[in-house]
Deep mutational scan, measured.
Amino acid sequence: SDYEVNVNGIHHRFHNISEELIKFIEEALRRGEDLREIIKKVRELLG
């Protein structure tokens, strides 16, 4: 049904976003950045 496609589409989009965010955060932590600064950047990215 349309509803299922829609829900799956939304889930898929969020899954991709969270994968990208996790990579972004892991790389920043590897560079020794402060978690609070990383979260601030993530918030800015998400608008």
Rank of each mutant, 00 (worst) to 15 (best):
I25R: 00
I39D: 05
E44P: 06
E27T: 14
I22P: 00
G32I: 03
I17W: 01
G32F: 06
I39F: 03
Y3W: 09
R36H: 10
D34R: 07
E27A: 14
G9Y: 00
E44H: 13
I10A: 10
S1N: 11
D2Q: 03
H12S: 03
G47K: 12
H15N: 12
A28C: 05
K41N: 13
E20N: 09
L35F: 05
H15A: 12
G32W: 07
E37Y: 12
V5Y: 02
F24S: 06
L45E: 07
E19P: 10
I10N: 11
F14Q: 01
I39P: 00
G47N: 12
V42Y: 04
R31H: 13
K23D: 11
D34W: 07
E37C: 06
G9E: 08
I25K: 00
H15M: 08
H12N: 03
I38D: 00
V7L: 07
I25W: 01
R30P: 04
E20F: 11
F14D: 02
E27L: 09
N16Q: 04
V7D: 04
S1P: 05
I22F: 05
R36A: 12
L29V: 14
N6Y: 03
H15C: 03
R43E: 15
E44I: 13
E37P: 07
L29P: 00
N6A: 05
R43S: 14
L35R: 02
I17P: 05
E44C: 11
S1G: 09
R43G: 13
L46H: 12
K40Q: 09
G47I: 14
I10V: 11
E44T: 12
E4D: 11
I10W: 01
V5G: 00
G47H: 11
I25V: 08
F24T: 09
R31G: 08
G9C: 03
K40T: 15
A28D: 10
N6R: 10
E37H: 12
E4P: 03
K41A: 14
N8G: 15
Y3T: 01
E27Y: 05
E27M: 07
D2I: 04
S18W: 03
L29C: 02
R30C: 06
K40M: 14
L21I: 09
R43Y: 14
S1H: 15
I25A: 02
R31A: 15
E37G: 11
I39G: 04
G47R: 08
H12D: 06
I22G: 03
V42C: 02
I39S: 04
G47S: 13
R36Q: 15
H11G: 02
E33C: 06
H15G: 09
N16C: 03
E27N: 12
I10H: 15
S18N: 09
E26A: 06
I17H: 00
F24N: 08
L21A: 10
L21P: 00
I22N: 01
R13I: 15
V7N: 05
L45A: 13
R31Y: 10
E27Q: 10
L46N: 14
R30W: 12
N6W: 01
Y3R: 01
R31F: 13
R13H: 15
F14Y: 02
D2N: 04
E44G: 12
E19F: 12
G32L: 06
R30V: 13
G32M: 10
E19D: 12
R30D: 10
K41S: 13
I38P: 01
E44Q: 12
R31Q: 15
K23T: 07
I25P: 00
N8S: 10
I10D: 15
S1Q: 13
S18H: 05
I39V: 14
E27H: 12
A28P: 01
S1I: 15
L46P: 10
N16Y: 05
G32H: 14
G47Q: 15
F14L: 02
G47F: 05
Y3N: 01
N16L: 03
I38E: 01
D34L: 10
R31W: 08
L46R: 12
I17L: 09
D2W: 06
I38S: 02
E20T: 13
L35H: 03
I10Y: 01
V7H: 10
D34G: 13
H15Q: 14
V42Q: 02
I17N: 01
G9N: 07
I25T: 02
K23I: 11
A28R: 08
N6T: 13
E19K: 08
N6C: 04
R43F: 09
I22V: 08
S1V: 15
R36F: 14
K23Y: 13
S18R: 06
G47P: 15
K40V: 15
A28W: 11
I25L: 06
K40I: 14
D2H: 07
I38Q: 02
E4G: 02
E44N: 10
E4T: 08
V5A: 03
N8F: 00
S1F: 14
G9D: 07
S1Y: 14
N16T: 04
N8M: 00
E19A: 09
R36L: 09
L29Y: 04
R36Y: 12
A28S: 11
L45Q: 14
Y3A: 00
K40N: 15
L46M: 15
E4C: 06
R43V: 12
A28Q: 15
R31N: 12
V42D: 01
R31E: 06
K23R: 10
I17E: 01
N16S: 06
K40D: 13
R13S: 13
H12Q: 05
N8A: 06
H11L: 14
E19H: 12
G32Q: 15
S18D: 10
K41W: 08
S18L: 04
L21Y: 06
L45Y: 07
I25Y: 01
E37W: 10
G47T: 12
V5S: 01
H15F: 04
E27V: 11
S18Q: 06
F24L: 10
S18F: 05
H11R: 09
V5D: 02
L46A: 12
N6H: 08
L45P: 08
H12I: 14
F14E: 02
V7S: 06
E33Y: 04
N8Y: 00
S18I: 05
H12W: 02
K41Y: 08
V7M: 06
E19Y: 08
N8Q: 07
V42W: 04
I38M: 05
H15L: 10
E20Y: 07
I38R: 02
N8L: 01
F14N: 00
L29F: 10
G32T: 09
E33T: 14
K41E: 07
I17Y: 01
I38C: 02
E26D: 13
D2F: 04
H15Y: 03
E19I: 10
E20H: 10
K40Y: 07
I25M: 04
H15R: 07
L21Q: 13
D2P: 01
E27S: 10
E26W: 04
K40A: 13
